[in-house]
């Protein structure tokens, strides 16, 4: 995969009532059907953190996270700032 250099993520906890597969940071992830990006962030225990999200290659502004719904096979990249030179 091109793009942001990766640090391998562990498998996130799977929310209950899962119905579809998406890919989050390169990891296959089961989530509830039509979950919103906000819900995804919550389910990954990332709420309140300073993040940016790219969905299928396009950045989704934070203000739109509550209304953007995910579909089967979507690819999300969730990034943050870490130490670097």
């Amino acid at each position: 995969m091109s793009g942001i250099p990766v640090r391998q993520a562990e498998n996130p906890s799977t929310p209950t009532g899962t119905a579809m597969q998406i890919v989050v940071n390169g990891e296959n992830t089961a989530v509830a059907e039509a979950i919103s990006l906000s819900d995804l962030v919550d389910s990954l225990l990332l709420a309140g953190q300073r993040l940016a999200i790219e969905l299928n290659g396009a950045i989704v502004p934070r203000s739109l996270w509550p209304e953007v719904r995910l579909s089967e096979g979507d690819r999300a990249e969730i990034v943050r700032a870490i130490g670097g030179g």
């Binding site: 942001i4 562990e10 969730i78 870490i82 130490g83 030179g85």
Partner: peptide, 20 residues
Amino acid sequence: VTVAIRRTNLGQKPGEPNLL
């Protein structure tokens, strides 16, 4: 100060400190 942009570690525990 420079920072790098990287994938969020999905195994992260809530409340883990963040660079910013």
